[in-house]
Write a protein that binds this DNA or RNA. Structure first.
Lengths: 146, 146
DNA sequence: ACTTGACCTAAAGTTAGGTTTAGATAATAT
DNA sequence: ATATTATCTAAACCTAACTTTAGGTCAAGT
């Protein structure tokens, strides 16, 4: 059993955000005591862990809410919940791939500015063709310019 | 030389977004012909590729704009530009790590719902302890619940 | 009794990153 | 010549995800 303040500290999430999530229907099993104060239990902590994970992977609040609703509908929604996670797995894998692509261009830029700072000028590095670049930088450059 | 419509198709970015980026000062070398129509060249295409990359890694428009301004200020900003890319490299690497963590929980959930759908019930899978899970799932579960 | 700190709700405000609209000009095809 | 298509600007509008504000309740310590 945790208060909203404790949960806020545990997850480093503002209290206002936790209340907002509750208002949006993300904590379906969240109880309140008889003076209206929220009481978080292991189940809601689990839900919050999942919310953080789904949010990190780009899912919108309204879609997370829909999932939570399915959870409250029992076994008849098992299949759709499974499909949601399979789809989300693909989404995350694609995002990781795209970030790796972005990283290639950034690595090229790091090399570029390293050379430029050495010379205190872009003149020389600007004119280096891919065939003159170190092989890992060449790869990064070509990956990000196709 | 490309028109805004051609660039829009090449990058799959709405024309309105390209105009918005221009308005925000992201295309510092972008020229217009004498009737006010934008003419994109290789330099602005390069800038756009970089903008996409920085945006994908979570950088804000105003910070991208600041970088573009440094570019227009010549060699005295080489060092700060280099530092920006080094910092952004770390940011992306951290994001990839976090997405990999998120992926672990999603993989556990995929396994969980796969079992539940087999049984047409959560009853059995709900009570499986980490030590009874397949070893890769156990790892994923423990990684995402610490 | 009263002050302090943690909690509550409802409603308004904020921010980023666009998108849409309206009204105009320009280039192209028939 | 004229209709269509592409472009332009400025300004209003939109959405998601919060955050802040205002005004109030509640429990614990002094």
């Amino acid at each position: 059993m945790y208060s909203i303040g404790e949960v806020s500290k545990m997850f480093q999430i503002p209290i206002s955000t936790l209340r907002y999530y509750d208002k949006e229907g993300l904590f379906l099993g969240l109880e309140k005591n008889n003076s209206g104060i929220r009481i978080f239990n292991e189940k809601t902590i689990d839900a919050l862990r999942l919310i953080e994970c789904l949010k990190k992977s780009g899912m919108q609040i309204k879609d997370i809410k829909e999932f939570m609703k399915w959870c409250s509908m029992g076994d008849k929604t098992l299949k759709i919940r499974k499909e949601m996670f399979l789809k989300q797995k693909k989404t995350i894998e694609k995002e990781i791939e795209e970030l790796n692509n972005a990283l290639e261009l950034i690595k090229y830029k790091c090399w570029y500015y390293d050379e430029a700072v050495k010379d205190n000028s872009e003149k020389r590095v600007k004119n280096i063709t891919p065939s003159q670049m170190p092989s890992d930088i060449k790869k990064a450059y070509e990956n990000s310019h196709k």
